[in-house]
């Protein structure tokens, strides 16, 4: 009888957990007066503390939905596009301006000319205020110090095609993420023909295409590859873990280093639009730029007056020769080359 009861109990518990748990109003409704839903492609570990301090300062409850690496899962951007008719998100905090621009082109975002944007350089943001950029990462070359001596270290992205790194260099899949943005920027900056030649030279030097920037960092750090192209936040993680890696701002004396600013996007018709605006104002403040600089992501402030924390591993944006790019049209360019060049290129060489 006892055993019977136990079985019954087990069944009852499972059903209770399964059914009641599901149908009961799960989390406090996301459209309440004091709520805010933020989708973000910024890594959760960096976004969460910012959300928490916003919550403390304003009393508005932040529900953060972080993204996963888009090559491994389908990603929030698709979810945002699918939810366009009746959005669940108020703000999309994008880790790069290309995704923000895609949302604009799909009609998911709405313009919000935030007053808090004052002091932020205009060239990184959308002219129609659909997305406003702040703190940035940069695209850098990471190298393994055990495999590359100080005088052999790369200086330009063209070194990926240098014979001394033949078969020992890697990049992330240029169809995805910041690498795709970088590809688009190269096409814009070098012109189509030169950019195609550059990609062809990568093939000739047997550059390996990996699944993500994180993979590039991991496999250069563990010595599988000598050099790779990745983002500053990845590099910082490897440095903080004490991996034998160094990094280089590529093309510091020529076309410059590509900056990848964050972008704040207000979703059109979100359930808590006013709170969304408050959050965007909050993101754009100099204090947030300072906080992001202090975080493990070590993001570089776009405002020159924001003070860098002690031991900051990177330069400030104003100290760098940055690649001159029209951020507003990168997404269009990307769409064009994805189909016509990048996809076939990846198909052939992966």
């Amino acid at each position: 009888m006892k055993r019977h009861l136990l079985t019954l109990y087990l069944a009852a518990e499972l059903i209770a957990v399964g059914v009641l748990g599901c149908s009961s109003p799960s989390s406090p409704s996301s459209s309440g007066a004091n709520n805010l839903v933020v989708y973000t492609s910024v890594d959760e570990v960096f976004a969460e503390p910012i959300g928490k301090t916003f919550e403390q300062e304003t009393g508005i409850r932040v529900q953060l939905v972080p993204d996963t690496e888009e090559t491994k899962s389908t990603g929030l951007l698709n979810r945002l596009i699918a939810e366009k008719g009746r959005p669940r998100a108020d703000v999309f905090w994008s880790g790069d301006p290309v995704r923000a621009a895609i949302l604009k082109s799909k009609g998911v975002s709405t313009a919000y000319p935030s007053a808090a944007a004052e002091g932020l350089p205009r060239e990184f943001s959308d002219a129609e205020h659909h997305w406003i950029s702040f703190s940035a990462r940069a695209r850098v070359l990471i190298y393994n110090k055990d495999l590359v001596s100080e005088n052999q270290k790369p200086t330009s992205i063209r070194d990926l095609a240098d014979p001394r790194f033949k078969g020992k260099a890697c990049i992330a899949n240029p169809l995805f993420g910041t690498t795709s943005m970088h590809a688009s920027a190269l096409f814009q900056s070098l012109g189509d023909d030169d950019a195609k030649k550059f990609f062809q030279s990568l093939v000739e030097n047997k550059v390996k295409i990996l699944s993500s920037n994180g993979e590039v960092r991991r496999r250069v750090a563990n010595g599988e590859f000598a050099i790779g192209l990745t983002d500053t936040d990845d590099v910082n993680v490897a440095i903080e873990e004490g991996k034998p890696v160094g990094f280089v701002y590529p093309d510091a004396d020529q076309m410059g280093t590509l900056m990848i600013p964050n972008a704040a996007v207000l979703i059109a018709g979100g359930p808590n639009g006013e709170n969304g605006k408050k959050f965007i104002d909050y993101l754009l403040r100099p204090e947030t730029e300072a906080a992001l600089a202090r975080s493990e992501a070590a993001q570089m402030p776009l405002r020159s007056e924001v003070e860098l924390p002690a031991g900051f591993p990177f330069k400030s944006v104003s100290q760098l020769r940055t690649m001159s790019v029209d951020y507003g049209t990168l997404a269009e360019k990307l769409e064009e080359i994805s189909d016509s060049f990048l996809k076939p290129w990846v198909d052939e060489n992966q």
Partner: peptide, 13 residues
Amino acid sequence: VAIFTVMANSPEG
């Protein structure tokens, strides 16, 4: 999902 989102760029530890 938490592991998945965390792992993109978190310390390996």
